[in-house]
């Protein structure tokens, strides 16, 4: 299945050859009134690594995602994506620069079918103007078909062939998250951020999604930042783990290192005792 991936993706493979961090956050502070959601957090996402960000409820994981993707502007510190500063860039410019993310919960276009949703992911790669759309036959139609082929590859990768014409609103949570992932992949991002994609899933759905995330990494060779609430889920997936608690980074390292870290155990056990 993976060998069927089109040469369109080879661009991201050559990028993997360079050995530098793609996304760097440096000394970020983010406060909402009195609540400090992030306090002097620094992380660097390397080329082709799967970085998991974990932490108990309210630790600041979503806030970090929002800063990394340019949704929030941190009050202190800076975020650089491929060397350029994110602050001041509009969200749709950041997306065009190659950053894709999925949201906690579903932010999917429920009135559209699965195919249409993923086609929206191709938006930034499509160029047809309104006049050419008006005439449709000709360049616009050729472009539609070309991109539809890319979408079809993603549908195959995520094994959602049988539901491709269904409105997303009628799908269960697990499938919606898969479509969400497909839509992000359609953007051909050079980095993918996922905020708690597995929250609210049953074990089987979690395993499926974990498998797809691994497939995607193998096919695209892009770095992935995965936010997770549950430490167990990411142990097998992640190359590296960052642990947040009360807005601070309390640990960072390989899954094994993090598992043994007393500060992490305290944060998680502390949560368990609450």
């Amino acid at each position: 299945m993976l060998s069927a991936v089109s040469p369109l993706y080879s661009a991201s493979q050559s990028r993997a050859a360079q050995n530098a961090a793609v996304l760097v956050a440096d000394g970020i502070r983010m406060a909402f009134g009195g609540v400090v959601a992030l306090d002097n957090v620094s992380i660097a996402v390397g080329v082709d690594e799967l970085l998991a960000v974990i932490g108990p409820n309210g630790a600041g994981k979503t806030s970090l995602m929002n800063c990394l993707s340019g949704f929030y502007r941190p009050q202190q510190g800076e975020v650089r994506f491929n060397g350029s500063l994110l602050s001041g860039m509009g969200v749709h410019h950041i997306v065009k620069a190659g950053l894709a993310r999925t949201f906690q919960g579903t932010h999917i276009f429920s009135n559209m079918t699965v195919i249409e949703n993923i086609m929206v992911g191709r938006h930034i790669h499509m160029k047809s103007s309104i006049p050419s759309a008006f005439f449709y036959f000709g360049p616009c139609r050729r472009e539609e078909i070309r991109h539809r082929e890319v979408v079809e590859e993603i549908i195959e990768l995520l094994e959602i062939e049988s539901i491709r014409h269904q409105p997303v609103g009628s799908l269960g949570y697990g499938l919606r998250k898969r479509v969400d992932l497909g839509r992000a992949l359609a953007q051909e991002p050079s980095i993918l951020l996922m905020d708690e994609p597995m929250a609210g899933m049953n074990t089987e759905e979690k395993e499926d999604l974990a498998r797809f995330i691994l497939d995607v990494r193998e096919a695209r060779q892009i770095p992935v930042v995965l936010v997770e609430h549950d430490m167990g889920v990411v142990m097998d997936l992640a190359d590296r783990i960052v642990v947040l608690d009360f807005g601070r980074k309390i640990a960072e390292g390989t899954p094994l290192e993090v598992q043994k870290n007393p500060a992490v155990l305290k944060a998680y056990l502390g949560e368990g005792n609450r």
């Binding site: 749709h92 949201f103 047809s128 759309a133 449709y136």
Partner: peptide
């Protein structure tokens, strides 16, 4: 049926997610 039509439905459905799609 073009990317413009999809963008219209997208901003109607969810403007946060639309921005995220580079719209």
């Amino acid at each position: 049926r073009s990317r413009h039509g999809r963008a219209f439905v997208a901003v109607c459905d969810d403007d946060v997610a639309s921005g995220l799609m580079g719209i």
